[in-house]
C-alpha cells in the first residue's frame, strides 16, 4: 500500500516539476547546475576559504563541523539570493572582503584556534554571505541563475565535507601540520592581496 502511494506521489511530482534538468543540460553542453559547480571549482576565492574552513572545522571536532556544514551553504544561498535581488556591494568592498576572508580563515586555521562554536558559525556565515553575493553579482534573476546558485551551494557542501573529513580523525601529526601550513599560505596570500589592493586599487577579480 505504502509503495503504491510512493509511486503515485513520484509520478505526480514529475508531472508538475518542469523539465529544466534535461532540456538545458544537453542542449548547451552544460546546464546551469553544472555551471554553478564549474564556477565554484574554478574560482580560488571560493574554493580555498571553503576548503580551509573545512580543515579547521575538522580540527575542532564533529559538533563544529556539523554546525558549519549547515551554516556555510545556507549563507551562500542567502548571499546569492541577495545578489539576485540586486543588492550588490561595490567592487572594492568585495575585493577587500576576499582579502579579509583569506586572512581570517587562513589565520584561524594556521593558529589552530580554539573558540566557542558560535564564533566559527559566524565566520562561516560571513564567508557564505560574502562569497555568495560575489558569485552571483551581475546575474539576471531567473531559473538559470537559481540553478547555478544551487549547484554552487552543493559544491560548497561537498568540498567542505571532504575537507573536514581530512582533519576530523586526529591521529597523525603531519595532517594537522599540513592543514596549518595550508592555512598560513591562505592567510599569507590574503595579506599580499591586501597590500596589492592598497597599491594598485581594487581592480581585482572578486
Amino acid at each position: 500500500m505504502r509503495s503504491a502511494w510512493t509511486a503515485a506521489s513520484i509520478v505526480a511530482l514529475a508531472a508538475v516539476v518542469p523539465g529544466v534538468a534535461s532540456a538545458h543540460l544537453m542542449v548547451s553542453g552544460m546546464g546551469p547546475l553544472y555551471d554553478g559547480i564549474d564556477h565554484f571549482g574554478l574560482t580560488p576565492q571560493d574554493l580555498l576559504p571553503v576548503a580551509a574552513l573545512g580543515l579547521l572545522a575538522g580540527l575542532r571536532g564533529p559538533p563544529t563541523a556539523r554546525l558549519l556544514l549547515g551554516v556555510l551553504p545556507a549563507g551562500w544561498l542567502i548571499g546569492g539570493a541577495v545578489a539576485l535581488a540586486g543588492a550588490v556591494p561595490a567592487a572594492p568592498v568585495l575585493a577587500w572582503a576576499t582579502a579579509g576572508l583569506f586572512m581570517l580563515v587562513g589565520g584561524l586555521l594556521a593558529a589552530d584556534l580554539r573558540a566557542p562554536r558560535a564564533a566559527f558559525g559566524l565566520v562561516a556565515a560571513a564567508l557564505g554571505l560574502l562569497r555568495g553575493v560575489a558569485d552571483l553579482a551581475g546575474a539576471a534573476p531567473g531559473t538559470g541563475a537559481a540553478l547555478s546558485l544551487l549547484g554552487m551551494a552543493a559544491s560548497v557542501f561537498v568540498v567542505f565535507a571532504l575537507a573536514a573529513s581530512v582533519t576530523l580523525p586526529l591521529t597523525r601529526l603531519w595532517t594537522i601540520v599540513a592543514a596549518r601550513v595550508a592555512g598560513s599560505w591562505l592567510a599569507a596570500a590574503g595579506l599580499l592581496l591586501a597590500g596589492w589592493i592598497l597599491r594598485y586599487g581594487a581592480r581585482v577579480a572578486s
Binding site: 594556521a110 601550513v181 598560513s184 592567510a187 595579506l191 599580499l192 597590500g195 596589492w196
Partner: peptide, 22 residues
C-alpha cells in the same frame, strides 16, 4: 620543524605587504 613552516609564509607575506604599500 612544524612551527617554522606555519609562521614563515606569514612573516614573508607581511614583508611583501610592506614592500607593496611602499
Amino acid at each position: 620543524i612544524w612551527l617554522l613552516p606555519v609562521t614563515f609564509p606569514l612573516v614573508m607575506a607581511f614583508g611583501g605587504f610592506l614592500g607593496l604599500i611602499g
